[in-house]
Simulated scan of single mutants.
Amino acid sequence: MKTVTVTGPGTTAVVEADKPQAGPRDVLVRMRACGICGSDALYIHVGGIPPRQGATPLGHEPAGEVAEVGAEVDGLAVGDHVVINPMAAGDGIIGSGGAQGGLSEFVVIRDAVVGTHLITVPKHIPFEVVALNEPMAVATHGVNRAAPQPGDKAVVFGAGPIGLGAAIALKLRGVAHVVVVDIVPDRLAKALRVGADAVINSAEEDVAARLTELHGEAPKGVGVRGIKPATDIYLDAAGAPVVIETVLAAAKHGARLSIVAVHKKPVEVDFGAILTTELTITMAMGYPTEIFEVTPGLVANWEKYAEIVSDVIPYAEVQRALTLATAGKVVVSIP
């Protein structure tokens, strides 16, 4: 079979590999789609992940079709469409340093248990949407860390795939009003299509002032000076220092900030200045429980989630797909 592998710093190749064999407790999955993540660019740049430095299989956002089911595996049949938990693989994280990658023609799931390693999805959902399950689990974990309550008002910074997924998840959790902030008009238009109640172009508008117009003015708190928007949740999916600066200056008493973005440089925080706000700051990494929690919402709202996909690239052009990943949400279609 074919698989995409890091071959050295800055280089990848489609290589021939042995097709994995399924034992009685295993499931062989024919890959049908796999998303490209920004972390894939990092793996390529550094030349792979130990212990497979220089030979790291890529692809950790997989969706596929069951090709073989071991005799001791329950709850699956050949032809089922499935999404895989790449973190649960017994031979390492799929596509992130493990022995297998989702940008392959086949992946074998050892000791497969439905609900732990993989889960079925309806066959009418396009595979490129099913492949969003993993990044949308990341977005949902960021939302969960913010502890949204019905009726809350929220703002998401960054209208990339994670930010858009967070906006959808917030609405599904009953948040009353969700604003998305970005500087790219096309991304803001997409945010409205996935269900955001309003958008702000931060290159053209004062974010705090506009949030106050949209969410109202927060009650004055002890030691809190000036007008603050009544925004309950701030979610950072952008990773720019100015986002943190904006939130710290705007946050009302008792607001929550969830940071799911990767900040590549240190951000200075004056804790003395925000002490009286009692702002809750949480970090969100990966998806400890969300990998299949997100699936029912993805299935029920797949047309909204489909808006997140910017490009579907055939497997024959996978090298081009890897170069496009920073421009949007690229999914590789695998025949």
Score class of each variant (00 low, 15 high):
residue 121 V to Y: 05
residue 109 I to N: 01
residue 70 G to R: 09
residue 117 H to N: 11
residue 69 V to D: 11
residue 142 G to M: 13
residue 139 A to N: 09
residue 114 V to T: 13
residue 83 V to K: 04
residue 67 A to I: 05
residue 103 L to E: 02
residue 135 P to K: 06
residue 141 H to W: 10
residue 119 I to S: 06
residue 92 G to R: 13
residue 80 D to H: 10
residue 110 R to V: 05
residue 89 A to S: 15
residue 86 P to M: 11
residue 100 Q to R: 03
residue 103 L to A: 00
residue 133 N to E: 12
residue 138 V to Y: 05
residue 117 H to S: 08
residue 74 D to H: 13
residue 76 L to N: 03
residue 118 L to N: 08
residue 115 G to I: 11
residue 127 F to E: 14
residue 78 V to S: 02
residue 90 G to K: 07
residue 74 D to V: 12
residue 94 I to Q: 04
residue 145 R to C: 12
residue 107 V to K: 10
residue 74 D to L: 11
residue 126 P to H: 15
residue 72 E to A: 08
residue 84 I to E: 05
residue 133 N to M: 14
residue 86 P to D: 10
residue 140 T to C: 14
residue 140 T to E: 14
residue 112 A to L: 07
residue 106 F to H: 12
residue 100 Q to H: 06
residue 92 G to H: 07
residue 97 G to R: 11
residue 143 V to H: 07
residue 143 V to R: 02
residue 113 V to W: 00
residue 70 G to N: 14
residue 128 E to W: 12
residue 87 M to S: 02
residue 116 T to A: 06
residue 118 L to V: 05
residue 114 V to R: 12
residue 130 V to H: 08
residue 115 G to A: 08
residue 75 G to H: 06
residue 145 R to V: 11
residue 68 E to V: 15
residue 136 M to Y: 06
residue 113 V to Y: 01
residue 124 H to R: 14
residue 115 G to D: 13
residue 133 N to Q: 15
residue 105 E to N: 12
residue 127 F to A: 15
residue 117 H to G: 04
residue 129 V to A: 07
residue 130 V to G: 06
residue 67 A to R: 07
residue 134 E to H: 10
residue 124 H to W: 15
residue 76 L to F: 05
residue 91 D to Y: 00
residue 144 N to W: 13
residue 82 V to I: 14
residue 143 V to G: 02
residue 87 M to D: 04
residue 112 A to D: 11
residue 85 N to T: 11
residue 117 H to E: 14
residue 107 V to R: 11
